[in-house]
Design a protein around this nucleic acid. Sequence first.
DNA 1: TACCCCAGCTTATCCGGTTCAGCAACCGTC
DNA 2: GACGGTTGCTGAACCGGATAAGCTGGGGTA
Lengths: 356, 356
Amino acid sequence: MAAESTGDGRGKRRRATARRPTISDVAQRAGVSKVAVSYALNGQPGVSDATRRRILAIAEEIGFSPSRAARVLSGAAAAGAIGLVLSRPARTLGIEPFFMELISGVEATLSARSYGLTLQMTTGPADEAVVYRRWWGERRVDGVLICDLRVDDPRIAEIEKLSLPAVVIGGPGQTGNLASIWSDDAAAVVETVEYLYALGHRVIARVGGVPEFLHTRIRADAFAQVCARLGIAEATSVDSDYSGEEGARITRRLLSSRNRPTAIIYDNDVMAVAGLGVAQEMGLRVPADLSLVAWDDSVLCRLVHPALTALQRDIPAHGARAASMLLDIIDGHPPSAVQDATARLAPRSSTARAPW
Amino acid sequence: MAAESTGDGRGKRRRATARRPTISDVAQRAGVSKVAVSYALNGQPGVSDATRRRILAIAEEIGFSPSRAARVLSGAAAAGAIGLVLSRPARTLGIEPFFMELISGVEATLSARSYGLTLQMTTGPADEAVVYRRWWGERRVDGVLICDLRVDDPRIAEIEKLSLPAVVIGGPGQTGNLASIWSDDAAAVVETVEYLYALGHRVIARVGGVPEFLHTRIRADAFAQVCARLGIAEATSVDSDYSGEEGARITRRLLSSRNRPTAIIYDNDVMAVAGLGVAQEMGLRVPADLSLVAWDDSVLCRLVHPALTALQRDIPAHGARAASMLLDIIDGHPPSAVQDATARLAPRSSTARAPW
DNA sequence: TACCCCAGCTTATCCGGTTCAGCAACCGTC
DNA sequence: GACGGTTGCTGAACCGGATAAGCTGGGGTA
């Protein structure tokens, strides 16, 4: 391993990438100290207007932008990024429009304020805690967004212990002292069931999501309650994993049962579309024989025939608001629990009067 | 603005978040110098096994992880993140499963090597260059992935100028000296058209994507050529913006034309599904009257009825490979142009023999 | 015993910024 | 013309790590 330093012309080993200009380069060119450059760039007093302009021109010319690492280290700046951990199997994320829409909303807020978004996918909530700790220790993010809130979620305590700024997207309740943004899923369920009831449906089923998630529980409870109140005896609620396959399987089972439902409410759009396929394959007409309602209204619902009645939420706006809250908290505002708009029922062609 | 420092009990203003342990804290607790801690944590020689174990135990106990900023600054580490800029309208990203699948694949590679992914959305390629420059100057990312390669893409020159490690997802050609990963879209087009020709189709239309994108051009050229070769005179190619609305509009126009096509190839799945809806709405039976082929096979294609014949690619794997290449380049490997698997035609129920 | 070597540490320096405490030069003022 | 105040700048210290070089004590060796 004769590490002779040839060719390069410098003693020190360089990275392959070109040398990036530093504050000293600017200072040298301008014939001032780096302190003057720092003041000039940050709009601080301490340099004359003429010097300031000269420095700014030079910085622009040589394409200087201050090293984030150095600014972070000196305590002047934060990481300039927020973190988002997704712990769903990587392959299934692609099919859930929800996350991409959420992310695009989050990004809309962040890019407006020159913040970055750091993503990480993990296999489960246990790994997530590790990621949070690492991020926090490395000062890699200034705060985190927490999705898929679980019942008795261990992440809440972990984040609180680190006193890492955070916003929980979910709730209400179970968010500890962390800020949160939530929408009233229970009310949306009630509205949907009452609507189906008004259409004459008396056997209504619900295909829920992952039972560990808090919002699944909230929706399931609301469904059971409103059905009890309306006197709907046949109110089946089945859990799933949100996948199209599961949605199809459960729908097939529901439609094959003795007292088959005349209306089904799905916890996401992928399962609803899969359910529609099963209904058609089994020779049932939608909506004449069977009404379907999807939760979360992506293109999917509008593209299929008949178009699916869906619970509509502005997910990008939801994400944007969550990001905005997080930036406020990073700026020192106290955490709060904000209620966002309730999903509203968008009736389309997949719901109609009950067949009997 | 009486900035009295009360309550905190410290002279210096603190961030709201708890104090993060530093290497000095570990050193002090262990009764050694920071250097010993550094050696111990990095597996370097210079400390005895007993001391090393003690240091590691203490580090673990107080939850220490080294400040990324400090490591970057001292030149020992890179940013530990790669960047991905998406310049499509934020709202439309949610509906394209492609990106989320790509991202999940990228993440699979990155999380395995403890790399982060920094996302940024911009409004156009001009802004993208600004982002690259800033990232590079701030040393925020170690490399970037470039999507949606355009014809004469200005980003290529910009990145080369910065000598920022990069992998272009797209091509072949027009990628300068940058590494790239591409698949042979031309071959996939040829296979599809030949398949449709074999089924007896003689009037075939194609609904393309954004004409500025290189792959749109490649596909359009291949389509024109293979149609010419097979003697298909009626070979319409229409550009679009990938949206379902456009897909529906164009399909409606194609199906209303005098010499209407018996087969349509779409450049993405969203448009294909929208096209299917239009066909059904116009009373055409798929596949008896009209055959449809989608490019990129997401759940969408499988969930609709009839299920759509699609050009299948393993997008997560594509993303994972791209990320892997980028990490290699960051490690100093020379850039290369890699050909990934060609999309293969997955025949389903939306294609059949031509009606006449 | 004198010598050398090496394991096992420490001290000093550097990375690229920010910030605080000086410190000249210039101004007007009494 | 000595004084105080402002303006415009600089030197030095610091952030939290990595790293090169120096130091020390104990063991082996001649």
